[in-house]
């Protein structure tokens, strides 16, 4: 450690120095950066794709059927063409256009559902923790009961009864099943924070209840809220894709799950049309890995004990 300045650093020392920098600024977490990068790339595909690609190609019959990606041949011996770089599906839709429209749709459902779920969770969690008594009992029992009900079961019934639904409607339905764990988490944190010295100090300072909730407690909850938010985005996307693959999602809007549903329905597996179902699956995988990395990274940011110095 007492290295003179003019000596070049060894690799071990460089690594040590990098670890120190990470320790100093926890947001420089490699997991967090990679995870955010993966998700951002999905968003960028959706944003930039709109400008460089013709989105009308998502409509049925706009392109030749079952074309493979460039450099591959399908069973009929056709090879991929530059007009459809990652192939077309059995309905003559361009896969690239489907992905440009569908991948952000899938993310959107997940984000919207968990935003709504989190808002409900924050509201109920704070109410339960802060007000206590009857309100607390009701909310706690409600959340505990709801957590035991498998969401897919209820949603299948709902969707089949409603028929075609919009993306927003689906997000709303899913939100009804992702508010329980944030509620429980926030309630527990609020209960312990309510006893803390700084909340008592704020009370002594004549602070209003809303000041205590939103200015004193909320900032300290941010790491938990982030973590919980990412976890519920994952749950929401899994639920949404699950419904879509069963054919119960929106009928006219391309999503990754819907594409997989159609591929399975049209027998893409037997016809060796691997790009039809494979590419959306790969993208879903990227989304989940991105979310997982962000969650792990956030865990290390908010819990310094997980951060390793040596």
């Amino acid at each position: 450690m007492t290295q003179p300045n003019d000596m070049p650093l060894t690799r071990a020392e460089k690594r040590q120095a990098r670890r120190f920098r990470q320790f100093d600024n926890p947001w420089l977490n490699p997991k967090l950066i990679w995870g955010a990068g993966l998700l951002l790339s999905i968003v960028l595909i959706g944003l930039l794709g709109r400008f460089v690609w013709d989105l009308d190609l998502v409509f049925t019959g706009s392109s030749p059927l079952k074309l493979p990606p460039i450099g591959f041949e399908n069973l009929r011996g056709q090879s991929g063409v530059a007009a459809h770089p990652i192939g077309t599906d059995g309905g003559g839709r361009d896969m690239l256009a489907m992905i440009i429209v569908g991948a952000p749709n899938t993310l959107f459902v997940g984000l919207l559902a968990s935003l709504i779920g989190m808002s409900i969770g924050i509201f109920l969690g704070f109410s339960a923790g802060f007000l206590g008594g009857r309100v607390d009992d009701t909310i706690r029992v409600g959340a505990d009961v709801m957590i035991t009900i498998p969401p897919l079961l209820i949603l299948v019934v709902f969707q089949s009864a409603f028929g075609d639904v919009s993306l927003t409607m689906m997000a709303l339905l899913i939100a009804g099943f992702v508010w329980q764990s944030p509620t429980r988490l926030i309630r527990a944190q609020v209960l312990s924070m309510k006893q803390s010295g700084y909340v008592q100090m704020a009370q002594l300072s004549g602070a209003s209840t809303s000041h205590i909730m939103f200015r004193e407690m909320m900032p300290n909850l941010v790491p938990y809220l982030f973590g919980s938010f990412i976890a519920s985005v994952t749950t929401s996307i899994v639920t949404a894709v699950g419904l879509e693959v069963l054919g119960l999602g929106p009928q006219r809007i391309p999503t990754l799950g819907r594409t997989i549903y159609e591929a399975i329905n049209a027998g893409a597996l037997i016809q060796n049309l691997w790009w039809w179902w494979g590419i959306p699956t790969l993208l879903l995988g990227i989304i989940f890995i991105g979310l997982l990395l962000i969650n792990l990274g956030l865990d290390e940011v908010s819990n310094p004990r997980l951060r390793k110095l040596s």
């Binding site: 010295g197 300072s205 602070a207 900032p219």
Partner: peptide, 29 residues
């Protein structure tokens, strides 16, 4: 009443909100 009755608690480590600089605790009241 709050203005006129103040307190010093036992645990100085818990008395400051870790999110804010310490002057928040003096400025706010």
């Amino acid at each position: 009443f709050r203005k006129n009755v103040q307190a010093v608690f036992q645990d100085p480590y818990a008395c400051f909100n870790p999110f804010y600089r310490v002057n928040h605790a003096l400025k706010f009241p």
